[in-house]
Nucleic acid binder design. Structure first.
Lengths: 341, 341
DNA sequence: CTGTTAGCGCTTTCAG
DNA sequence: CTGAAAGCGCTAACAG
């Protein structure tokens, strides 16, 4: 492995000149630059990232923290989000290091930063009131939350307006005549899930619809829990005529159960999901859902993070985006005021 | 940010002693160790990874290359594989850096290594005859392929026996009376897809079943292409009575199309997939498929890679695992020798 | 425009 | 068991 030293010798220049060429310093004489570049080519030289990081104090890599990596990675939604993050990072010459909050060293979100393996952190779907966020803020570690919020100093976030999403659906279902609207919550330890639930309750209240605890099922984001949700709602003496699932996975599980129990969606029961994963359009019926502005989420988050990495003074940026409605076939007019099944 | 220096001063020892304590060298007097550890605690000291990497020549990070990251990340199968890789790496104190073969610097698989950002590479689902593999081998860069193979020196791989998978399904479908078995290929530029196709042709030949080109549809792994495959097969004057899809996604798309066209699976047409993604059990009917030994794939790949990183002499390990059949509801007896629809 | 010096924070090597 | 010296490969800061 050739080093800067070798290149310098070969091109008959100083180390600094090589460094300047590598870093595109304009005040190198073209002839010299040429000579150096040839040496680089011939010796197949690549600057050593560790050495660079050591004195520039910039690793040019960003850490990605996934609190529940197993679940998160089985969600195509998150996978694509990661893809988009990588895609935003790449042109800015940053690499992406995957960390987890499950495994040993992941316990401490700040570790990767303190070890100087990363310059900042992207944190996806953090837990509610995660105490580790405090540590990030205290140390003023550049970080951006995605699908979560925190008003602590130094923390940025990019989130979707979950309240609006739910509100839209409640309105929509009401307009179809539904008044008994069930809700399947996601894992409530996660900010996202809890916001959606709160949105549900608020939206109902606003429309003077009584919030009934029995119309609420606590799922965990998985298809399986959506399946269970159906069984639960069906067991009610006065079941809902429409159901809002907090993500598409649960909606798909719900659909499966409905089919097996001969409940026709949307005729007997209306259903909506959130995320617009690919499968949502391959079910029967196709699921009405909300598409998250994934691309914007990723690029805004990356912008915010790199901004914060490169700024002297602590800085945070906070943005809330709107999702896009995708109307498909899983909702219908309310059959009447009686039970659905 | 405290440095080793600070700790040394505080504990009144040399830099080396601090280093020894940090690295768990047993020949440090307990009393000294204690003192150092307290200083570390108090000063909140973490060793600087860049400095370590610089003179130990070990970055303790591994790069993950995804040739087609967009597709790969939308596949829950791959996401979970990545999760498992991270999980195997973590206890060995390695971190995972995500690279891509799409973006600029990803063009060259060797870059991350040459820059000393990683000690080795995990490469998922590489293209057939990817010329870049040659470069890896030439430079003797520690690398392991997953779901691909290469006999080049220095390259290890962990793959599943695709031939056996297909052979099993052909046998199985034959035993149900099927003789006209259609095949939906994945993206044939990928090793995986091509092996499965070859397996299909061979298995048919072995059983003296004529391989008909019209029974073969070239998909691209997506649900959408599975949907198209159905339309294509249905248009045939003599359609297949059973279909093997190269992955579950395509099987799901196929199922959707079949449903929309009132073709009953498994009554009118049998179908199998591969991968056993979560959705495969949430369709109607549930899809018969093959479960990949993902956990073993990940841990064997990581073992092979770390082995090769730490060995003086080039070494490669090559393993081929078996998948596990998951019989569900998408296959049935062949209705007769006539067309299926 | 180019070179010299010093040092980033750690570990290797060799002496005690 | 512990320490001193040297250096990993690079760049900031200053000279020239």
């Amino acid at each position: 492995m050739a080093s800067q030293q070798d290149v310098a010798r070969m091109a008959n220049v100083s180390l600094m000149t090589v460094s300047r060429v590598v870093n595109g310093d304009p005040k190198v004489k073209p002839a010299t630059r040429e000579r150096v570049q040839q040496a680089i080519e011939i010796l197949n030289y690549y600057p050593n990232a560790a050495a660079r990081a050591l004195n520039s104090r910039k690793t040019m890599t960003v850490g990605l923290m996934l609190p529940k990596i197993d679940y998160v990675l089985s969600e195509p939604y998150f996978s694509q989000l990661i893809y988009n993050i990588e895609k935003s990072l790449s042109p800015r010459n940053y690499d992406l290091l995957i960390g987890t909050a499950e495994h040993q060293n992941g316990r401490d979100l700040t570790l990767l930063y303190k070890q100087k393996k990363v310059d900042g952190l992207v944190i996806i779907g953090s837990q509610i009131n995660d105490p580790r966020l405090q540590a990030l803020s205290d140390n003023c570690i550049p970080a951006v939350l995605i699908h979560a919020r925190s008003e602590l100093p130094c923390l940025s976030y990019v989130d979707v307006d979950n309240f609006k999403i739910i509100e839209y659906f409640v309105d929509y279902l009401c307009s179809l005549g539904h008044r008994r609207i069930g809700f399947i919550a996601g894992d409530l330890s996660v900010v996202n899930a809890s916001h959606r639930l709160v949105g549900y309750k608020q939206s109902l209240s606003t429309r003077s619809i009584l919030v009934e605890d029995q119309l609420l099922f606590n799922g965990d984001w998985s298809s399986h829990s959506g399946y269970e949700a159906f069984l639960y709602f069906k067991s009610l003496s006065n079941p809902p005529t429409a159901v809002i699932a907090s993500n598409d996975h649960m909606a798909i599980g719900f659909l499966k159960a409905a089919y097996e129990h001969n409940v026709d969606i949307p005729r007997d029961l209306s259903l909506v999901g959130i995320d617009d994963i690919e499968m949502a359009s391959f079910t029967t019926p196709k699921i009405t859902t909300m598409r998250q502005p994934m691309h914007d989420i990723a690029s805004l988050a990356v912008d915010a993070l790199i901004d914060s990495i490169n700024s002297e003074t602590p800085r945070e940026s906070r943005v809330i985006l709107d999702a896009e409605v995708v109307l498909r076939d899983s909702c219908g007019l309310c059959a009447g005021s009686g039970p659905a099944s």
